[in-house]
Design a protein around this nucleic acid. Structure first.
Lengths: 209, 209
DNA sequence: GTCTATAAATGGATAGAC
DNA sequence: GTCTATCCATTTATAGAC
């Protein structure tokens, strides 16, 4: 009855604590304390801490899947890319504990490793598709090798931008996300046709101020 | 007498174990076991695990300082950049445990946070200087905003490339470093004059094969 | 300098009562 | 479903003998 509710509360609370304190610094006891339930109760709902992480990952996976859904039939413009980046970065932000300790978390769990690899693959496909669209629209110009490299750079940047912001000591969450988007766009800028390049520079300037 | 030697052995062994197993998974007992000394002995030489990490960080800091030393008086060519990237990536590789759990490690220690911020600052200055050199030599062409963004992207890429390689499951160490260098170079490629762009593509092709 | 022994604290996890 | 009680393993760190 209240089972589903407790389970969800545990997941919500774990996510919040993982995100703010870092997953390695949050124990099952901390979570139980925060929720004012007993450790035994927590272990009634989840086999162990890794089980909680897997469930959170499933949520994350589904959400990222949406964000990476292929854009509509028409060729994408710069604003479409902006929107999609926003969805992706917001998702990463909401599950940033995964990214904060990505290597460590994935090294402990083979399943998550496989699933995260799939996400990266989808993101890579998506980046390629979008850039091909830009090329077809005559907005972008790049060799195949440059396009591959740019796609990879977009992935690395998106994956680790929030960590970089954290290391720099950036405090403002919204600013960090905005900066990340701008940073990715600037990755594509030099490949754009002059008119679009100017357009983008205006967009980013407006965004920054 | 053998004091200095034991101290160094502890540092060397810690570094090796941190790098291969991840710092969070290596305890002071593990290190003592591996060296076949007692935990008490280890604590005679170091106050705690964090002390060991700080000493290793000092080594890393000095080495990265060398790698980021301003290039010679003459304007740098693409090959000079290649070399410098190689030095930086080798340094990061040798102390990759720091980068694997960067946010976590820095969050635990204010001093390291400050020192790492200084390294990032130096790297940013260096990237700007190199790119200004390329611009002055007429090899590169970019607006001030594009140059700033490119410098930041170089930093993020260099900082987290090995993590990205690890997450992808890349096994070959040398290949990961090589790919990282190529990836950073490809970041600059689109800003290069056509002749240099072709030159770079030839360099990277030769490098990849 | 190095060892043995051990304290003190923590984290993960389970049994059994309610 | 939830709690109390508890166990076991691990980790950090120190005291004192050699």
């Amino acid at each position: 009855m209240a089972a589903r509710q407790t389970r969800q509360r545990i997941l919500d609370c774990s996510l919040a604590m993982f995100n703010t304190q870092g997953e390695p610094n949050v124990t099952t006891n901390h979570i139980a304390d925060e929720l004012e339930i007993s450790p035994g109760n927590l272990y009634y709902h989840f086999r162990n801490k890794d089980d909680i992480i897997e469930q959170l990952f499933a949520r994350f996976d589904a959400r990222m899947d949406d964000a990476l859904a292929a854009p509509g039939g028409r060729l994408p413009g710069l604003e479409d890319i902006w929107l999609q980046l926003h969805l992706a970065f917001e998702c990463i932000w909401d599950y940033r504990f995964l990214y904060r300790d990505l290597v460590e978390i994935l090294s402990r769990n083979r399943r998550l490793r496989v699933r995260f690899a799939r996400i990266l693959k989808r993101a890579d496909d998506n980046a390629h598709q979008v850039m091909r669209g830009l090329s077809q629209a005559g907005v972008m110009r790049a060799s195949a090798a440059e396009l591959d490299a740019a796609a990879t750079n977009v992935l690395v940047l998106a994956t680790f931008w929030l960590n970089y912001a954290a290391v720099r000591g950036d405090k403002d969450e919204n600013a960090a996300i905005r900066d990340g988007i701008v940073q990715v766009m600037m990755l594509l800028a030099p490949f754009l046709r002059d008119a679009e390049r100017v357009h983008l520079n205006k967009l980013t300037q407006a965004y920054i101020d």
